[in-house]
Computed example of a mutant assay.
Amino acid sequence: MSIRQPSSHKTVFDFLKQLQREIDAQDLYLELQRRGKKIGLATVYRALKTLHKQGSIQERMSTNGKSLYSATSFHQQHHLNCLHCQRSIVIDNCPINGKLDRWFQSQEFKVYYHTLEFFGLCTDCQEQEAFRQS
Rank of each mutant, 00 (worst) to 15 (best):
M1Q: 04
P6W: 06
R21C: 09
E127R: 02
I96A: 02
S56T: 09
Q107M: 14
Q86T: 10
Y113L: 00
R132S: 11
A130P: 00
Q18I: 07
Q133H: 08
Q26I: 14
F118T: 07
S62H: 04
I89M: 11
F119G: 01
A71P: 03
F104V: 05
M1W: 06
Q76N: 11
C85S: 01
A130S: 10
N97V: 00
L48T: 00
L83P: 00
L48C: 05
R87H: 14
V12S: 08
T43F: 03
C122R: 00
E108S: 08
K66Y: 10
F118Q: 09
R21V: 02
R34M: 09
P6A: 15
Y113A: 03
K10Y: 10
I23H: 09
N93E: 14
L32E: 14
F119I: 02
T63K: 04
T43V: 09
K49C: 03
Q18W: 14
L28G: 04
S62T: 07
K10C: 11
P95C: 05
T63E: 11
Q20W: 02
T115I: 06
T43S: 15
R87W: 10
Q107F: 07
N81H: 12
D92Y: 04
I96S: 05
S62M: 05
K53E: 12
R34G: 11
C122T: 03
H114S: 04
I91F: 13
T50C: 02
K49M: 08
G120L: 05
L48K: 00
Q5I: 10
V44I: 15
S56N: 09
Q77K: 11
T50A: 13
V90C: 10
A71T: 09
H79T: 07
L19G: 07
N81G: 03
L121M: 12
E127Y: 01
F109C: 10
R21F: 06
H52G: 09
A47W: 01
N97G: 04
L19T: 06
R21S: 15
H9R: 04
A25K: 08
C85H: 00
N93G: 01
H79I: 08
Q105F: 06
R132W: 11
Y113K: 01
S88W: 03
D24S: 03
R35P: 05
D101Q: 15
H79M: 05
K10R: 13
R102F: 01
M61S: 13
Q20P: 01
G36W: 00
K37E: 15
N97W: 00
R102G: 02
K99E: 06
D14C: 03
Y112T: 07
Q5V: 14
V111P: 00
S134V: 06
F118H: 05
S7Y: 12
Q20A: 08
Q18R: 09
A42I: 03
N81W: 05
V12F: 05
Q54F: 04
K37M: 09
Y113M: 00
S67M: 12
G55L: 02
F109G: 01
I96Y: 06
I57C: 05
R46T: 07
T43D: 10
R4C: 02
H9I: 13
C125W: 00
I3Q: 08
I23K: 06
